[in-house]
């Protein structure tokens, strides 16, 4: 290999800059809020994950062509329980505007009645899903997927930060 005295400094600087840039990437999660993040934010995010996973489990059952209604009922029951749990998971001061890593909009606290209503829509839709699964009617369960999906969307549209 030939060696040249060609300027090796600029590339070195470039490389270091690139590496430094990569290093600082992880610092982007910093928030403007002071103090530790309220634990309830992680809890409610895990709870919404549970709702999402239950919904996926139900839709997955319907895709197979041979749905396991006990599994659907079980998933709908978990969804319903998680929907109840959300009622206690939105204390004041935990919005995205408070500087936390969350998508909870301040409208949750500005329009509490509408938020409760949106939550009730999920409670009703999941309760109805339990009943339909118990009846073992695939078509009815499939139709109810739309109702559950609308209740998700209804709340996301008004109370969750739009990121897509």
């Amino acid at each position: 290999m030939a060696r040249f005295d060609r300027a090796t400094l600029p590339p070195t600087v470039l490389l270091c800059t690139v590496m430094a840039g990569c290093g600082s990437e992880s610092a982007s999660d910093t928030t403007a809020a002071s103090g530790p993040e309220p634990a309830v934010i992680d809890e409610r995010q895990a709870n919404f994950e549970k709702i999402g996973d239950s919904f996926k489990a139900i839709r997955g059952q319907l895709e197979g062509g041979n749905p396991d209604f006990a599994a659907i009922e079980n998933a709908a029951t978990q969804m319903n329980a998680a929907a109840i749990a959300t009622k206690e998971q939105f204390p004041e001061g935990t919005s995205v505007d408070d500087g936390w890593d969350t998508e909870a909009l301040t409208t949750i606290w500005e329009k509490p009645d509408e938020f409760t209503e949106a939550n009730q829509a999920l409670l009703d839709a999941s309760a109805q899903m339990i009943t339909l699964a118990q009846n073992g009617d695939a078509e009815a369960v499939g139709g109810q997927v739309g109702a559950v999906g609308s209740s998700c969307k209804g709340c996301h549209d008004n109370f969750r930060l739009e990121t897509d």
Partner: peptide, 22 residues
Amino acid sequence: LAAFHLSAIAFYLIVKQNDLVS
């Protein structure tokens, strides 16, 4: 892999005196 790639470039530049970036 990207980090490994950058390390390899740094190795060629510093140890082998071979500038791959230019």
